[in-house]
């Protein structure tokens, strides 16, 4: 464990808590893409199957359980409890166009052709594009509540911090995982436009308005 990965995981946890609080407090999931939340639930389910087989640390096990539980809780809140506030008309990204390529790529480019490894690789590829429906929804509505932009900033920062973690592990631990690094780069690049808007607007108290 290193400071980059620890802050990355905490930023990830913060994002999930911000989102749950936003939905629970405002009793509304307006402006949130349910499709992205479904993709995240698929990502954690397919990545953390090793919960049953390998024990790495109490921290690792605890965080995996939290990520899986909160991702399903968020999907439940959006599609069941606060279903009436779900923005179905704008949340129209075809997630099969993300899932199918991730499955194919995981079958073709992986480290080891075993069930657990292919599912792990699929989850890495899918996570790198899982935010697209959310960014698509923000671009369609042309704006985002500030709480939603804080959620996106924390979520985007988590993988950016992981990039620093991988640099650290390459030099300090002679360790690297090319698939995770390439997917992590793609994932972070997708946030660049948002990061720019967040830093130049939201941090100055303005609303996040996308140039229509």
């Amino acid at each position: 464990m290193n400071i980059f990965r620890l802050f990355g995981d905490l930023s990830h946890l913060l994002a999930i808590i911000i989102l749950l609080l936003k939905i629970w407090k405002t009793r509304s999931c307006a402006g949130i893409s349910g499709k992205s939340q479904i993709l995240f639930a698929i990502v954690y389910t397919s990545r953390y199957l090793d919960l049953m087989t390998t024990y790495i640390s109490a921290y690792n096990t605890f965080m995996k359980i939290v990520f899986v539980a909160t991702s399903y809780a968020t999907v439940f809140l959006m599609y069941m409890k606060f279903k009436a506030t779900y923005d179905r008309n704008h949340d129209t990204f075809r997630i099969e166009f993300l899932i199918v390529p991730a499955v194919i790529l995981a079958l073709v480019i992986n480290q080891e052709f075993t069930v657990l490894e292919v599912l792990w690789t699929f989850s890495i590829y899918l996570e790198s594009v899982a935010i697209l429906p959310q960014l698509f929804l923000v671009s369609k509505t042309g704006e985002a509540e500030s709480i939603t932009s804080h959620y996106l900033f924390a979520l985007g920062s988590y993988r950016a911090l992981y990039l620093l973690n991988w640099v650290y592990r390459y030099y300090a631990e002679d360790h690297y995982d090319l698939i995770a690094i390439v997917a992590g780069l793609v994932q972070t690049v997708l946030y660049c436009d948002f990061f720019y808007l967040y830093i130049t607007k939201v941090l100055k108290g303005k609303k996040l308005q996308l140039p229509a």
Binding site: H12, N60, F67, Y170, H175, Y176, L178
Partner: peptide, 10 residues
């Protein structure tokens, strides 16, 4: 430098 095969990250 070896490619890792144990996924110890979240």
């Amino acid at each position: 430098i070896e490619q890792s095969n144990m996924h110890d990250e979240l």
